[in-house]
Amino acid sequence: MSVWLGFAIYAIGLLGYNGTLRRLGVSPYLAWITAMLVQILILYGFAMTGWLTLGIQVVTYLGVGLAGLWLVMSFFRKAQLRFEGIHLFDFWMIGLGIVTGHTLWQSPLVHYDNFSHWAVMVKFMVFTGRLPGASDHLISFTSYPPATALFITQFVHWVGFSDGAMLVAQFILIWGAAYAIFAGLRDRSRALTSFALCFTLAISFVFNVAIRLNNLLVDYVLPIVTIAALVGIFVYRKRPILLCAHVAIFVSVLLLVKNSATFFVIMIGAYFLYTLITNHHWHWRRLITVPIQFAASIGAGVLPFVWWQWHVKQTFTVSKHQISTQAYAKQLSGESQQALLKIGTSF
Rank of each mutant, 00 (worst) to 15 (best):
Ala229Asn: 11
Tyr144Leu: 02
Val290Glu: 02
Leu66Asp: 08
Phe263Asn: 04
Thr142Asp: 13
Val122Cys: 05
Ala169Trp: 03
Thr193Asn: 05
Met166Leu: 08
Ala329Gly: 14
Gly176Cys: 09
Asp187Gly: 09
Gly160Val: 07
Cys244Thr: 02
Gly344Asn: 05
Thr53Arg: 10
Tyr220Lys: 03
Gly176Leu: 03
Lys123Leu: 10
Thr60Trp: 12
Gly68Arg: 13
Val122Phe: 05
Thr200Met: 15
Tyr274Gly: 03
Leu340Tyr: 07
Asp187Tyr: 12
Ile174Gln: 13
Ile94Trp: 15
Gly95Arg: 01
Val257Pro: 04
Leu303Glu: 05
Leu131Gln: 02
Ile227Gln: 06
Gly13Ala: 08
Val26Thr: 11
Val122Thr: 01
Phe264Thr: 02
Leu131Tyr: 01
His117Ser: 11
Ile323Val: 15
Ser297Arg: 07
Pro146Asn: 11
Gly129Phe: 11
Ile9Met: 13
Ile94Tyr: 15
Asp163Ser: 12
Ala245Glu: 04
Ala11Phe: 15
Phe272Gly: 00
His137Phe: 15
His117Gln: 14
Thr100Cys: 13
Gly184Ile: 08
Leu131Met: 10
Val59Ser: 01
Leu287Pro: 03
Cys198Ser: 10
Val26Ile: 13
Tyr112Ala: 12
Ala79Tyr: 15
Arg286Leu: 13
Val156Pro: 02
Leu96Asp: 01
Leu62Asn: 11
Phe199Leu: 13
Phe75Glu: 04
